[in-house]
Design a protein around this nucleic acid. Structure first.
Lengths: 260, 260
DNA sequence: ACGCCCTTGTGAAGGCATTCACAAAATCGA
DNA sequence: TCGATTTTGTGAATGCCTTCACAAGGGCGT
């Protein structure tokens, strides 16, 4: 199988330690996934004019516990001040740099149905270090139209566009039966990271990173928990709000889009 | 913090074992998340007329390794036949029943921007045991319009709609500044499970289950890996396709939407 | 009936991730 | 200058998930 789960950066694992001074060593996968959330929380604090924050309150804002937050941050280095907390601006920079968000990354978006258009219009892109550089669809009726300042291109030109714009990250929002084909072509054209919204498992060579967002799966997971809760409640009659034993769960999963 | 991570069903943990014969005990969270994926793979097999499948090939179709698959399935009970494999139809039923998908669940969708409309149009809903029973938006210009056979209702009527349709699961696809408010109202109206697409942490009482889908976070995670890869490649000149050491990662995350 | 072969189901081991709990900084006031 | 107070950073412990490896079980051919 392609799935590799090992540590993230074997970089400093064996011998040489040639690392950019700010860019630290091994960061656990789970931590990386949360950095993005911390970043959002920090942005919110900055907007409210807050310059310093303790692990406790940042953790609350991000919906995690403070020990985890501190351990996560400790992987980036030591950017807090004991007795005081973290400098919001500094920490923001550190996380951005760790995630590689300082160099506006070019992203291609393939598939412009409702979902694709929702993604194209997502304001969080630009503000978070990503720049949609290409919009691609298979429907010739759309090709040539302008959307958010970009001209929609036909999928036939996919390879050419990817190469000329030097795109390393692509978002697949095409129907399921077209997904693997689009994926293969993206990979052949040099794309190294793919975010897949089509409900299928994509086969990729081992140097390509795929993440998938699966709405049906999310709902089914909720359904499972809801099912359990329902079974539970049959015991006591109406008390929905007071179970709080098996009940709660704030499952922090992933990917997020602002509607409209 | 609200986040609880404990085992899923404390049900049979202590004393009594009063469980529906098909519905088995304790199922790990990680397993539940994958059941949905297996279900999709099984559906594909059934469509191709395949009646029996080995753990090895089902695992391949689902993008996991076979040991994990078998252990996952063992949590539902023993539905395979040694030397033969799993009966596709039977296993499908078992998973559906475990996830509670046999009773068409009513879902409310709040927010009908591009994303909301993409979700409303997602064919995978009905076919996977969910029925969108209410469409709600704050824009009075839309209210009264018909979308996919449902009339769009104003958010003022949220509580009434949730109660009259007996909705337990809601999908939030509203702008970030409206999300917490909508969430509070849903919870007050009795919703127990929420899928949140707004880029914010929702505060909910402990009996409510929230899952979130965060696109920006997904991209940022990809960015991180891409960044590492980039650093790596600087050593050898052009060989993009032959690293395959730190490189690959087929990160199976979650939620999925069919575009168009 | 019997034995061969295939595939499941599962103990046991190993690896990550989370949580706990506290010593090590750093500020502040006296 | 020093002690009180606050909050970070981190060893150690715990628990969950994954992976390994194989015994148990079931079909099938002879």
């Amino acid at each position: 199988m392609t799935a590799q789960r090992d540590r993230l950066n074997a970089v400093s694992d064996t011998a040489d330690q040639r690392v950019v001074p700010g860019t630290e060593r091994t960061i656990p996968e789970a931590t990386v996934a949360r950095l993005a959330i911390y970043l959002r929380a920090l942005t919110g604090l900055a907007e409210r004019g807050i310059g310093t924050v303790s692990s406790e309150s940042l953790a609350t804002a991000a919906g995690v516990n403070s020990a985890k937050l501190r351990k996560d941050l400790s992987h980036l280095g030591s950017y807090g001040v004991r007795g005081v907390g973290y400098d919001v601006a500094l920490l923001t920079d550190q996380i951005r740099s760790t995630l590689g968000l300082n160099e506006n990354r070019a992203v291609a978006l393939i598939g412009l149905g409702h979902l694709g258009q929702a993604l194209a219009g997502y304001a969080g892109f630009a503000s978070r270090g990503f720049r949609i550089s290409a919009l691609i669809d298979a429907d010739r009726a759309m090709v040539g139209d302008r959307l958010r300042g970009l001209i929609i291109q036909h999928v036939d030109a996919l390879e050419q566009v990817v190469r000329s714009e030097n795109i390393a990250i692509a978002v697949i929002a095409v129907p399921v039966n077209a997904a693997q084909d689009v994926c293969d072509r993206l990979v052949a054209a040099g794309v190294r990271s793919i975010l897949n919204f089509a409900p299928t498992v994509l086969n990729v060579p081992s140097h390509v990173d795929v993440r998938k967002v699966d709405l049906a799966a999310e709902l089914q997971i909720l359904s499972f928990h809801d099912n359990r809760k329902g079974a539970r409640q049959d015991f006591g009659p109406g008390s929905v709000a007071t179970v709080g034993e098996v009940g709660s769960r704030l499952t922090t999963t992933d990917s997020m889009v602002a509607a409209t």
